[in-house]
């Protein structure tokens, strides 16, 4: 079987950091939001809230610091992920199955995740550090934070389902876990993607 390099070390590390911080934020957020979980926490609510707030701050700082530190190794990923061709729009419209390294769905997932996370970071930070805003504005932002939480939850569930559960696409997880995917899989799902020379790995 022949394998090809899909993600390099910095890309996988960045994804792992974002995923870990997101998981802490999502689970602590759920504990603070779901009524019976909140009630059963009792005084632990304060500690959970503190973890939630500081993890949110870390999510605003750490990934961007990593992007800066590994800007050269990550440049190709960001260039491709944010570069939209008509083909990717056609992919979303179901008019083609062809794709370069990332298909239209993956690019949309990235875009939506960035937007939702940015929205959550801004609203969450201002709800936490509310001394600069009125209570009415704080409550407005809190509602927005919750709405983004619902949307992001749906999006992440979809992302995890396609990447780890749905049979036709779940091999993609290998790319994130091991950094490489089967060449046959890559040719089927990303036929226009030509891994750079030296990226093909035999086994």
């Amino acid at each position: 079987m022949k394998w090809v390099q899909r993600f390099n070390g910095p890309e996988r590390f960045l994804h792992a950091v974002v995923a870990l911080l997101f998981l802490v934020l999502w689970s602590t957020g759920l504990c603070l939001h779901v009524e019976w979980l909140r009630e059963s926490l009792g005084a632990w609510r304060f500690a959970v809230r503190t973890v939630h707030d500081w993890t949110g701050l870390l999510l605003m700082i750490v990934p961007w610091s990593l992007v800066w530190v590994w800007r050269q190794q990550l440049a190709a990923f960001f260039r491709e992920m944010t570069h939209w061709r008509s083909m990717e729009v056609d992919f979303l419209a179901g008019r083609t199955k062809r794709a370069y390294k990332f298909n239209g769905g993956q690019k949309l997932n990235f875009l939506v995740a960035i937007l939702l996370l940015t929205g959550m970071a801004c609203t969450g930070f201002l709800v936490w550090k509310s001394q600069w805003i009125s209570l009415q504005t704080r409550e407005f932002l809190y509602n927005w934070h919750k709405l983004l939480f619902y949307l992001l939850s749906v999006q992440v569930v979809g992302h995890v389902f396609l990447a780890a559960v749905y049979k036709p696409t779940r091999h993609a997880l290998q790319g994130m876990m091991r950094g490489r995917v089967l060449k046959t899989w890559a040719e089927e799902h990303h036929p226009l993607w030509k891994p750079e020379e030296g990226e093909e790995i035999g086994e």
């Binding site: 875009l111 939506v112 937007l115 939702l116 929205g119 609203t123 409550e139 407005f140 509602n143 927005w144 919750k146 709405l147 983004l148 949307l151």
Partner: peptide, 16 residues
């Protein structure tokens, strides 16, 4: 990006 932000703003405002 712009459409996404506009959509989120609108839905956030509706929730408010």
């Amino acid at each position: 990006c712009g459409l996404g932000l506009a959509g989120l703003s609108l839905s956030g405002y509706m929730t408010y």
